[in-house]
Nucleic acid binder design. Structure first.
Length: 212
DNA sequence: AGCAAGATTAGC
DNA sequence: CTAATCTTGCTA
């Protein structure tokens, strides 16, 4: 069972909430790795200064303007790839960032890809850059279809309540409540109430202080 | 051309 | 707490 393309071609917030509990699967020659989605963030087409597409189409964010159900993978902070699912109709730029997974299959493989981590380690997939590494997602997956193998979503179960907070690590649009997660899940990237100002935000404060 | 910023992570 | 690390997009 694979979620069809029309699962994604809806308003971004609705897709974001629907993604919680679904299982992200990546089949590779080394084996299959899969994890249940426990945390996401929505990036909206309109009135969202935190969205890459908020200042128009560029070479980097063009996948967000394409049809729904494709991957938007981009490089961040010089070290990490982040994985998004494109939403909305074509030419309407929306996406959902996958921020944390609960491992369900291929734990040994994920641990191997993550280096020193053990298969039962929470650090395996509890962050947007970490889960990309654990599943073996790379730059080459940018703009790949997610409604067919080898990288796809399988229907899963959700019985937990959905929690909502502001998004992590942004300097623009940081006040919008667009981060959705399964309450009390062990694999959340930031434990509720423990969020610290991100490096991006601190950098900005510093730059502002120098100017004044 | 050059530079600053960034949807993060791991290590001291 | 801070360095690492490099692509992108704008010209601070």
């Amino acid at each position: 069972m694979i979620l069809p393309q029309n699962f994604y071609s809806k308003p971004t917030v609705r897709v974001a909430r629907a993604l919680l509990g679904q299982v992200l699967v990546h089949e590779t020659p080394q084996g299959t790795a899969a994890g249940r989605i426990v945390e996401v963030e929505a990036y909206l087409p309109k009135k969202d200064p935190g969205c890459h597409a908020s200042r128009g189409k560029t070479a980097r964010n063009s996948p967000m303007f394409g049809p729904a159900g494709f991957a938007y993978v981009y490089f961040c902070y010089g070290n990490h790839y982040l994985f998004n699912v494109v939403t909305e109709k074509e030419d309407v730029p929306g996406a959902v960032l996958i921020r944390a997974l609960e491992p369900v299959e291929g734990l040994e493989l994920m641990a191997q890809r993550r280096g020193k981590f053990l298969p039962d380690d929470l650090g395996l997939t509890n962050g947007p850059g970490k889960l990309v590494q654990a599943l073996g997602i790379e730059r080459a997956h940018n703009q790949k279809a997610l409604f067919k193998k080898p990288l796809y979503l399988r229907p899963g179960q959700r019985k937990e309540k959905i929690g909502v907070t502001t998004r992590i690590g942004l300097t623009e649009g940081a006040d919008l409540p667009l981060r959705f997660f399964l309450t009390d899940n062990d694999y959340l990237s930031v434990r509720p109430g423990k969020a610290r100002p991100s490096m991006a935000m601190r950098k900005k404060m510093k730059a502002r202080a120098v100017k004044v």
